[in-house]
């Protein structure tokens, strides 16, 4: 089963003259966690709404789990769970009542609806507050209730729009753990976010959105290589910096750039983690190594670097 879960070709949405999404080709494989990244207003939410058939595309083709969301919205929506940004519930109803309503809209029978609602609430740690009105819930609890609602359908694909926005760090960390669990169960997840370090933690693949286009796509490593050139930065500190050591460093295979930051501190750029070779080169050249460290590529850096570059190009 390796056919893509989500596949779009030339997907475009225009509002008048404004192009919200511009000929998007997206392909998400089963079992992956795919992150849509981009600044606000770059077309992430519009893309998600088109995948669910909640907004009609102006042009292009969409297939979600093999169905066309525009013509077969019921088949798509009964298999796909959607967690909108700033998820809302009926505040006067209890958590359980909210879930039962959604279960009924999905055509579940009464006993089945109750069983699944109880399971989902227990799984999200909301069993104790199942009969409290949702109006009393915190943001993090609502978000977990949102996931409980999505799990109710037993979906093959879950789409989350800015799921960690507005959560405190602890709640956000818990939420990312939930996403990892879903992935371990083989559920495909598509999530959009502009909180990059969080996306980096859970996503197998990311797509970078800018002005309605997906400008970059791949694993975090691939993006780093594309945008930053070198994915790893090695920091080292020497007791007595000398010309000889510096020369030795630049001759280590795989090191692309050596920058002297002053006071014996150096920054090296490499495509892979070459700490061992660097350490040997320093010692062999007679240098005294005080500290050696490496930065894995971070999405924040890729993102900042990319948007710095495009800002210089007039749109």
């Amino acid at each position: 089963m390796n056919a893509p879960v989500i596949e779009t070709q030339g997907l475009t949405k225009r509002y008048g003259d404004f192009v919200a999404v511009d000929s998007l080709d997206l392909s998400v494989l089963p079992g992956h966690v795919f992150g849509l990244l981009g600044p606000n207003g770059s077309g992430k939410t519009t893309t998600i709404l088109m995948l669910l058939g909640l907004t009609e595309p102006t042009e292009g083709q969409v297939r979600v789990l093999g169905f066309d969301p525009e013509r077969q919205p019921l088949s798509v929506k009964s298999r796909v769970g959607y967690l909108p940004d700033q998820v809302g519930f009926y505040d006067d109803l209890t958590a359980r009542e909210n879930l039962i309503y959604i279960a009924k809209l999905n055509g579940l029978r009464r006993d089945e609806a109750h069983r699944r609602a109880d399971d989902a609430l227990a799984r999200m740690g909301l069993a104790d507050v199942a009969d409290h009105p949702v109006g009393t819930f915190s943001r993090g609890m609502r978000q977990r209730l949102g996931v409980a609602e999505v799990l109710l359908k037993q979906p093959q694909l879950i789409i989350m729009d800015e799921p960690t926005q507005g959560l405190d760090p602890e709640a956000a960390r818990e939420f990312l753990e939930i996403i990892r669990q879903l992935r371990a169960e083989g559920i495909t997840v598509l999530l959009s976010s502009h909180l990059l370090h969080q996306v980096q933690e859970v996503c197998d693949h990311v797509g970078l959105f800018h002005r309605g286009r997906m400008v970059l796509e791949g694993t975090v490593q691939e993006l780093a290589r594309q945008v930053l050139g070198s994915a790893y930065r090695i920091h080292l500190e020497l007791a007595e910096p000398s010309e000889a050591v510096e020369r030795a460093l630049s001759q280590v295979p795989g090191i692309q750039k050596v920058v002297h930051r002053g006071e014996g501190r150096y920054e090296l750029e490499a495509q892979e983690d070459h700490r061992a070779q660097v350490a040997r080169a320093v010692v062999e050249a007679g240098g005294q190594l005080l500290a050696l460290d490496v930065d894995a590529p971070s999405l924040d850096e890729i993102y900042a670097h990319y948007f710095q570059e495009v800002e210089h190009v007039p749109a």
Binding site: P84, L105, G107
Partner: peptide
Amino acid sequence: NQRTLSRVLAQPIY
């Protein structure tokens, strides 16, 4: 205003 509309319409109903 309660932000429930998109969630309800994401269920398999028209």
